[in-house]
Design a protein around this nucleic acid. Structure first.
Ligand code: FES
Ligand code: FES
Lengths: 143, 143
DNA sequence: TCCGAAATGTGATTTTTATCATATTCTGCG
DNA sequence: CGCAGAATATGATAAAAATCACATTTCGGA
């Protein structure tokens, strides 16, 4: 469903959303221990996200990663699409091709609209909408 | 969600359910072209399933793979648990640990009961229940 | 009883994913 | 300007998943 990398990326972005801002940046070194992701692996993921303008960064002393207001307004799907590609999440349960309600495979009814609902939620929920729930204690950022 | 291997295994089992019986067995050679799975890879998967009594087989001439009445009554979850292990399907969307409604991660509400519903369906649906739908034309076995 | 047809067992190779390491570029500050 | 602190770029290694290859065992039939 989601690759390991996508999970890591989501955790990292959510962590940044909770703990950084334009004038409170954070280095990978200070992130990776808190979310339990291997340091250099995390670095690579953050660079990829940064390159696609999903997160922000600045180099040099006093630099680091952070989320701008613009970043916070992005839908979650952007994160997983950049990391996993658009295919993976949308592929059929039995085959290579994209899941297609018009031409349902044998398992399609068992998964129901579960998957498409999940995708829809990822498309419609922004990063800061999600962390509101976390801040309200309704859910938690694991590890 | 499901590994490639699990998808292959499901396709193969469903194909066997549709086209074989105790006295109409089928060789890997005749299966793999029809479901578009690499021959020796398929062979290995079928052996694994056979070893766990999910499908039946007999050696020698006139031998092959088939599903017994007993096999047909098995729930689908057996297939994916044998191939993928019980962990994979039940793991949390953000972390390593098992998905746990009591202690929901930040994404948990976005996926809703999608995943647990899917698992429940896999547990409650038997192989022959599923192929009834296929025979009725309500769904299709891809590739 | 013997032969050939099939699954089974074992392990090697390739590809993808995950991980590690290091050199390079940019940037704020003194 | 020049230095040190940060991200960025690049590529090497390790582990897991997918794929391939071949030798072995079992069994039905001539
Ligand atoms: S068509 Fe296969 S899961 Fe939807
Ligand atoms: S706890 Fe993370 S998906 Fe359920």
């Amino acid at each position: 469903m989601l690759s390991n990398s996508a999970k890591y990326a989501l955790k990292a972005v959510l962590y940044l959303a909770l703990h950084t801002s334009e004038d409170n940046k954070m280095m990978v070194k200070d992130i990776y221990t808190n979310i339990n992701v291997p340091q250099s692996y995390l670095a690579k993921l953050l660079q990829e996200l940064s390159k696609h303008d999903i997160i922000s960064s600045s180099r040099g002393p006093k630099g680091g990663f952070y989320l701008s207001a613009k970043n916070l307004g992005l839908p979650l799907i952007r994160i997983v699409d950049v990391i996993d590609g658009e295919q993976r999440l949308r592929s059929c349960m039995l085959s290579i091709h994209e899941c297609d309600s018009e031409n349902p495979c044998a398992l399609h009814h068992l998964v129901g609209n579960a998957n498409s609902d999940f995708i829809k939620n990822l498309e419609q929920t922004t990063i800061n909408e999600l962390i509101l729930e976390v801040r309200a204690g309704k859910s938690v950022l694991p590890l």
